[in-house]
Amino acid sequence: MGTQKGLWSFANKFFTAGVLGLYITDRFASVAPVRGSSMSPTLNPGTTKLMGLSTDDYVLVEKGCLRNYKFSHGDVVVFRSPSNHKERQIKRITALPGEWIGTRRFYDVLKVPEGHCWVEGDNSSSSMDSRSFGPIPLGLVQGRVTHVVWPPQRIGAIERRRPQDTISRL
C-alpha cells in the first residue's frame, strides 16, 4: 500500500511539474537552438568548441512581446517559416507594418503590409529571409531573442541593431 501511495505521489508531482513547465515555456520564456550561419556573427559566429565538440548557440526567447505584438527595429525574433510551418527561423526585424523599404538586391520599393514585418539575417549571403519570401505575418512570430544562454563562453545579451548594408527605410 505504501509503494502505491509513493508512486501516486511521484506521478502527481511529475505531472504538476510538467504542466507548470509547459505553461512557463508557452507564456513567458523558452530556450531555442540556433542552426546555421544566417545570423552570424551575432549568433553562431563560427565553430565554437566545447571540450572538442562543435556547439550551436542556444538562446533565451521571451514571449511577453506577443501580447500586443510589441516589436522594434533590430529585434531578433523566432518565427515559423512561411513556407514550411514545421521549420523555425531566427532573424532580425528590419521593417515594421506600414513602412516603406527598399531592397538593394532587386532595386525595388515596397510597403510592409499591416500585420506583417520584414526580417533579414545578419549574414545576407547565407540567409533565406524576407528578401526570399517577402514580409512575414506577425502571427508567425513566436518570441524575441534576448540572450545567448549556451555555450558558456558566449553567454550574454543580444544587442538590438539594424543591419546597415542590406535594407533601408524610405
Rank of each mutant, 00 (worst) to 15 (best):
M1P: 06
G2N: 14
T3H: 15
S9A: 15
F15S: 05
A17C: 11
A17F: 10
G18E: 04
T25C: 06
F28K: 04
A29K: 05
S30G: 12
S30A: 11
A32W: 13
R35T: 13
R35I: 07
R35M: 13
S40L: 05
S40W: 06
P41T: 13
P41W: 11
L43V: 10
N44G: 01
L50V: 15
T55D: 03
T55L: 03
D56E: 05
V61W: 07
E62C: 12
E62R: 10
K63V: 13
L66M: 01
R67F: 09
R67M: 02
K70P: 00
V76M: 03
V77I: 15
F79G: 01
R80I: 12
S81T: 01
S81M: 05
S81K: 02
P82G: 02
P82Q: 02
I93W: 01
T94S: 03
L96G: 00
R104W: 09
Y107S: 14
V109A: 06
G115C: 03
H116Q: 13
C117Q: 00
V119N: 12
S126V: 04
M128I: 05
D129F: 08
S130C: 09
R131S: 10
S132A: 11
S132G: 03
I136L: 04
P137I: 01
L140Y: 14
Q142N: 08
G143R: 01
R144Q: 01
V145N: 06
H147S: 12
Q153Y: 00
E159Y: 01
R161G: 14
R162S: 11
S168E: 06
S168Y: 03
L170E: 11
